[in-house]
Computed example of a mutant assay.
Amino acid sequence: MTDKTLDCSDLDRIMGVPIQPARMREPFANTDIRRWVQAMHYPNRIHYDPDFAAESRFGRMVAPQSFPVSMDDAHGTGPSCIGCIPNSHLVFGGDEWWFEGPRVFAGDMLHNHRVPFDYVVKDTKFAGPTCFQRGDNYYYNQDGDLIAKQRSTSIRYRPDLAREMSNLEEDDRTEDPVWADAELMQLEEQKFEWIKMLHDLGHGKRFWDDVNVGDQLPARIIGPHSIASFTTEWRSYLFTLWCGVKRRTDLDIEALGFVGDMAGKEQDPVLELENPEMTDGAYIGPSRGHLFPRYARQIGMPRGYGYGASMGAWILDYLSGWAGEWGEIVHSNCSYRGPAFTGDITVMNGEIVDKMIDDEGRHLVQVKFKMVNQLGVTSATALSEIMLPKK
């Protein structure tokens, strides 16, 4: 009989103990912001068109609220992937964000103070005993201003049990769905409807007074996803570039419990100077499961799959785009139910479920969010509070 235990005993010693902070080498440039929004499929001109941005309330290009995580060396999951769980792998399980008000611009330098928070082990249909581990990220700028707090959830599990329980040999999900040319053209038209919403709002204000409980937010579509689109997303994170960030010296993939093809020396600061090819997560180590179907199947995934941190950015960008430049997400609690696979599309929808004025006098709307694929399978949900201007 297969041993189906998951040893999480090492985690207790590191809860609440800060790990090495994430630090940038050089300040952000406008090109970093452009690269990010293009990779996240977010065509909001205030983030990439300097002429349009100059006429905005900011007077220049501003980064989207999803942007701080791009500076981190682990997509924000660093403090939720700490401690050894033998023979394990990791996927993202969700993020909760609290935004403090300051925004990010070219010239800013961010650092991330990271603290493991807690964990719990549950039995899942995906991989049997599964560890849901959380860690906190505090993103500060060069002036010491807190930009945002992110509580990241990682899902750590045994890939051998995931393979056994998924029965991939008999799974028709190993092949990408096929889209006809007419279907692809229709998707592009549907995508443009959401982009036109951004254009129509422009520099205008979406007033709290003009929206109501029950209002449906416009649908947003991304995809079909591909190895190429996932690779574009991957390269928008600073840590995926050679010497793109100051590397951690306390990161040992094998010591975390990753085994076999998923171990390796991804982000090793010493090997990066000798042979950076061997430290690039697109090709070596646990991250390559996203871009190579053969490695995806080793960890219980049917084919290439997207990044949880990118999924989180899609959610924040969807909400921010609707709110406009005068609005702001103040809190968002996102739960990831399953990844985006190659060949799939992602469809986002939201509904206003509450209107309120908080203790600080801010006028807020609460939005219930859902993300599904073309078959209606849920990949993420969220409940978010957005501040809107008052007439």
Rank of each mutant, 00 (worst) to 15 (best):
M301Q: 15
M262P: 04
V365Q: 06
I155W: 06
V91S: 11
D359T: 08
E266M: 15
Y283D: 00
E183T: 08
M387K: 15
A219C: 05
D143A: 13
E351V: 15
F117Q: 15
A127F: 06
D215F: 14
F28Y: 11
S379T: 06
G350D: 06
S166G: 12
R23M: 13
D171Q: 06
S88M: 09
R45W: 07
P293S: 09
L90A: 14
K355T: 12
S332Q: 04
R303N: 10
M301E: 04
F207R: 15
I85H: 07
Y42G: 03
P276F: 10
H331S: 14
Y119W: 09
Q366R: 15
L316H: 04
T249F: 03
P269W: 06
G376H: 04
I222W: 06
Q186G: 11
G107F: 01
N275P: 02
Y119E: 03
W179Q: 01
G312H: 08
F52D: 11
F292T: 07
S384M: 06
L6A: 03
I315F: 03
A340T: 09
S88E: 02
L217E: 01
K246W: 03
T240G: 08
F239D: 02
D123H: 11
C81E: 12
V104K: 00
N167F: 14
T279L: 00
I227Q: 03
K368A: 14
P177M: 02
W234I: 00
M24R: 01
G128N: 04
D261E: 03
A382Y: 09
L364Q: 05
R220G: 03
I33L: 04
D7V: 10
V372G: 00
D209M: 09
D209R: 13
A180F: 07
P159A: 00
G107N: 05
Y139T: 01
I33P: 08
G59N: 04
M61H: 11
F292D: 05
